[in-house]
Write a protein that binds this DNA or RNA. Structure first.
Lengths: 240, 240
DNA sequence: ACCTGAACACCGTTCAAGT
DNA sequence: ACCTGAACACCGTTCAAGT
């Protein structure tokens, strides 16, 4: 007899909990506040439920993190698999794939951290790497060179590298004063930074992550291609 | 009057606490049990003191982690600075430096994690990078190319890369059976792995981290050198 | 100046209890 | 079958109190 009143009072928590809903909430939480903001208690809170209820749909926090990666990788796989492997030279295709994956990853700042922290052999990740390996094969790379290439690319194959130096720092009058102080201690770095910022129009944000990523990616892909051609050349020389 | 008895009873905790002693104990703890095993409470326990006493010598846990990195980097700097920059071709010198740094890092499994987790601009790290930048300059690299080269190397300049795939896995009869199952889902990876392990003498540990690291390092250094030479060639062509 | 104990605000996870 | 509340064993850090 109170049914009407009940549905009116709280219409939100009608959708039943599920593994998928938990994972999506976890991704939202991490997108907003970073991986540190993700706790089982906050996750439960966001879903309008006690933290302990989550354990009915998820094995524990590790399982949540693994699941988040799988959701993300499925999203990436769906996108990169639309790229036709024979739509152009192998390098262009590889580039397009990697940069498409990167685009997705950039929307999820927690992804590099989480990806690197786990021993990752889940199906969606394997599926991704399998396609990359396949692309090398199709381009005539030997098994060995493909293997080394995968290692050389490392996390770059997925579209990211953990940046060691965050140089998005603004160069206000404070830091420029500090630069002079540092000039004696780190003459080469200071020389490099000051010359680059002087040449550019803007003094802030003196390097472009995207550009640097593509530079290194091309460096590696070009190098691998050269090794492939050298290998092929050596093989034909042997038979002649 | 009880002094003799006191010194006999506990002779160990005579050395007074200090920032340095805290940091070295932290490194020991992390070396043994990984970074997760490092807590302020356990750190205090190891030093025979209440956790809260540490705060007299250290600002907090973040400061401990920063300090650990600095201790490590000082050790590395001391070693790599013994390498004479003009003792050979730039690439050989760079290689030797990077691999020497790597050797130290390999003794501290927590280092990659901690290094990547902090926004690192401390003096010992800057000192390290400054020497690398200096080496590029000395080898005739332009400011821009040096800059891109630093980014391309990334954490590799320090001697490590966060491995995405840990393939030290042993291939026992269990996993080989699994491989066949996976063959349909990940044909390229399975093909690559099986062929490589078949060619090699041993079926376990089918790749050598050190070899892969050096392969990628050489790939990048070779690529950078080629770009440097092309730049120089373009410059002379312009003047003639 | 240095160390301590109790306390606070958090964690992940277990378990018996509820419906 | 699913959710809850209390509890356990941990965190980092603050603060008043001791010496």
């Amino acid at each position: 007899m109170l049914m009407a009143g009940q549905t009116k009072l709280k219409a939100e928590p009608r959708i039943p909990l599920s593994r998928e809903r938990v994972l999506h909430a976890a991704i939202e939480l991490a997108d907003e506040g970073g991986v540190d903001a993700l706790s089982m208690r906050k996750l439960g809170q966001r879903l309008g439920v006690e933290a302990m209820s989550l354990y009915n749909h998820v094995a524990g926090k590790d399982d949540v993190l693994d699941g988040m990666v799988d959701v993300l990788m499925n999203e990436i796989n769906e996108i990169v698999n639309k790229i036709e492997p024979s739509s152009g030279p192998w390098k262009a295709v590889m580039r397009e794939r990697v940069l498409a994956a990167r685009k997705v990853l950039l929307r999820h700042p927690w992804a590099p951290d989480v990806l690197e922290s786990r021993q990752n052999l889940s199906a969606p990740i394997m599926k991704y790497y399998d396609a990359v390996v396949g692309l090398f094969f199709q381009a005539g790379f030997s098994v060995d060179l493909t293997h080394h290439g995968m290692h050389a690319l490392g996390s770059r194959a997925l579209g990211f590298t953990q940046e060691m130096y965050d140089d998005s720092g603004e160069l206000d009058e404070n830091t420029t004063a500090m630069l002079e102080q540092m000039a004696t201690e780190f003459p080469n770095i200071v020389g490099m930074v000051s010359q680059i910022t002087h040449d550019a129009d803007s003094t802030l944000g003196w390097c472009d992550d995207q550009y640097e990523f593509e530079f290194a990616l091309d460096l590696i892909l070009d190098g691998l291609e050269r090794l492939r051609d050298r290998e092929a050349q050596a093989a034909t020389a042997e038979t002649s």
